[in-house]
Each structure stands twice: as structure tokens, then as C-alpha cells.
Design a binder for these strands. Sequence first.
DNA 1: ACTACTATGCCACTGAGTGGCACTTCTTGA
DNA 2: TCAAGAAGTGCCACTCAGTGGCATAGTAGT
Lengths: 229, 229
Amino acid sequence: MTMSTPTPAERALPLRERKKLRTRKALADAALRLFLDRGFQETTLDELVDAVEVSKRTFFRMYESKEDVAMAAELELWDAYVAEVAARELHGPVLDFLRETLVAAITGLGEDWDRRFLATRGLIARTPVLWDRSLLRSITVQARLVNELETKLGVDSRDDVRLRLLGEVSLAAWRCAAKNWISGRGYDGPQGPREKLGHWKGPGGSTQLIRRVEDAFHAIPDSLTLTAP
Amino acid sequence: MTMSTPTPAERALPLRERKKLRTRKALADAALRLFLDRGFQETTLDELVDAVEVSKRTFFRMYESKEDVAMAAELELWDAYVAEVAARELHGPVLDFLRETLVAAITGLGEDWDRRFLATRGLIARTPVLWDRSLLRSITVQARLVNELETKLGVDSRDDVRLRLLGEVSLAAWRCAAKNWISGRGYDGPQGPREKLGHWKGPGGSTQLIRRVEDAFHAIPDSLTLTAP
DNA sequence: ACTACTATGCCACTGAGTGGCACTTCTTGA
DNA sequence: TCAAGAAGTGCCACTCAGTGGCATAGTAGT
């Protein structure tokens, strides 16, 4: 386990918690490295656990499954998203709220996350079981979001359908955005070429990801009226 | 393995195929019975396989996983849906097309399916792993649908986002519909009380399911403009 | 009947995930 | 400062889905 200079936030936590977070992070880092190197299926949990010098039992106290540790970066995003939704005031169109909040969550995660997430999505894209799990997580987070929004709006179960649909649509937009972000490098979205933008965090960076997200959200109304000749 | 009077469609198939389909069905039936009786997690594959007097190896030639055999009825629906989409002419609003086709697929599956599907959804609702798997399948079918629609429409990858979003939204509507169908028995949708309808296949029948589907699809445009005070 | 072919059975094996208990390490309160 | 007590960890045996390989039995075509 490598030592690193603890952030102020870490310092505030009791020693026990800090240690726990450190092995948690060590597991995620080693997992990403091993999986990228040898492949997800090809790497066994025992190998991962040996590399971090932790028992398998401890691993399962940190992560629910082998898939989850590979997608640790994505799980961080979802936690940030839900927290952001809970923290923000809600008024105006809910769909806009969900988009803005998602963008805010991405922005708030920093550059290190940026790199890890890019690598993670690459791994997910070429590993079917991870792809499935990622899909599933994106739907599960929708339930958490809708739950939060219900409290905020105080809706009864009658309006439920609309709210749930809205959650589904938002996460659907996310999935489209994330897919395009990884696969389509040379694509200029409806907002025109990117060179004019000025500062952005390089190819595949979170700035590009955010643009994909906004493109996808903006495409929603049009998609509903899509008509065949 | 119980014998039953073969339908004309079955008679057309070679003997080998018929046998295969029969064990396939026997597995699905026994699985549903056992899982409903003892619970999904509590029943092992070996027990199921023993009950049908088939080897475990054979089981995995029929179904991909333990989850899949429990959701056999749902898989039938998805196959029917995709087939229906492939068979129909496409013109007019694509969202309407997807709704109508889904309704047609449900209608075409018959009363036996009706009963099995109701039981299946009940099982899914109280079994987390099945719930997850069902969610996943509903997203996977979306990929198949979009694929089919792409061929029909001849769209380039630029329009892809809209088409994919449309697929996502449709399946999202389905998930809402299916959830409400199982959980909310006493709920009168926006189309008014049901007693006036005349013929329908009883509580939880596919006629009710279809109404849920139509309600959910109709709620889509409204949900997008949902606004907080 | 003879030959493809293909579905099935059998069996050993992998590997994720769990339960239980002993052990170590941190926290807390007197 | 030191003794509980709590929380985290390691070890080990176990369950059970899912797979690979090969022998066998039943089916289709000639």
C-alpha cells in the first residue's frame, strides 16, 4: 500500500476510516491496472487481492463484486450526482435541473478522476460483463434520484410515472453520451467544431464528456418526434 | 416431462427440434414452479435439473443463466417484440410505431403466456437479482430494436443519438408500465375506470398490461416539461 | 443398414462470493 | 495511562453457478 500526502478532508477522519479508504483506493487502482493489463476475465480476484496484500474477505467488505471495483470511478460519479441533486435547490424545468446537476457533478470530481474514468470507460467498452453492470448501475442510480426528487417535489404516486420517466430519460441521455464519448473521437456535435473552445482538458477529457452530455440532453425533444417517411 | 398435444407449428419441425423445445419448456415451467414455491435463491440449479431429469450441462445449452430460465416468459415477449418490429412497415412517428408494435407483440402471445408472465413478474418483483436481470434485458432489447430500425430508416450515425434515445425512452415506458402493473392494482389511469371496458382478461391480465403501457407512453411528452415551482 | 450429425450425460474443474471465528488495531472513557 | 469494547482484518472451509472435454445415444440422410 503506497502512502500519499493526505488531503485536509482525509485528516478530519479518524485513523481507522483513513486506513479503510486507503485500501479501498489501493484496490481500485490495482484493479484498474491489472484489468487493463491482462483483461478483466483473465484476472482472478485472488491475484488482485494478492497484489494489494489484502484478504479476499476484506475485498468484499469494500466492494460488492469484482465488477464494482473495476467501475470504482463510475460509482464515484453516481455518488457525487446523487449528493449534488440532494444539495441543490430545485426550481424550473426538472429535466434542465437533472442535466445541470449532472454536469456539476462531473466538474466537481477533479483531474485525477478524469484520467481514471477515461481508462475505466475504455475497459467497460471492451468487457461485456462490465458493460452490463455499468448499464445496471445507471438504472439503479435513477431510482435514487427519483427518490430524492420525490421528497423535494412532494409528489404523490399519481405523478410518479412522469417523474420516473424523467429519471429514465436523463440516464438514457447519459448512456448515449458516455457511449459516444468513448467510441466517437472525430465527431463534431451540433454545437460546431471544438477548436474554438479555448481551455479544455484534452481529448477524452471531462470537458468533452460534458459536451456529449449536453448534446444528448438537447437531442431528447427532437428524438420523440422522429418520424419515418 | 409431460406430453401435450402438439400445435401445427410444432408438427412442422423435425423431431429433434420438437424434443428440444419440449425440454426447454419443461425447464421453464419447473423453474417457475420451484422458484415461486421455495424462492429463487433458495432453489439450486441441481434441484431444478433433477426435477426435470436433465443434466446441468443440457440446462446451459437451453438457457444462458439461472436468471434467464426464471424470466422465460419475458424473453418470449422480447423475441416477439423484435420479430414484430422487423415484420411491420414503418411510417409515421417512430414512437407511436414502437408503442403499437409492443402492444401487438403482447396481444399476440396468448392466454397461457398471460398467466405465466403474471407469475413471472411477481417473482421478479420480490427477487432483487431477477429484478436486475430483467432491467438489463430490457436495455439489451433496446439495442436490438434500434439496430432493426436503423436498417429500416437507413440513418447514418449522426441521427443515431435520436434513434437510440427513442429506444431508451420506449423501454423506459415499458419498465414503468410493468412496475405499475404488478404493484398498483387499485389505480385508475388517466383513461378512467376500467369497469366500462367490457371484455378484458381479468385482473393483471394482458389487457390491463396494455393499458399501463399506453398510459406510460402517453405520459412521455408531459414528463419532459415537468417543472418545479 | 451405414454413416453424418447433433443433442445429451457425466465428471472434474474454476472462480466468485459467503459464514464463522480468531486475531489485531484503533478508540474511548475512567 | 490503561483497560475494556468496538471495529477491521485474516484465514479457511464451504456453496454453487457456470465451463470444458469427451463418451454415448438418438436422429437424419443415403
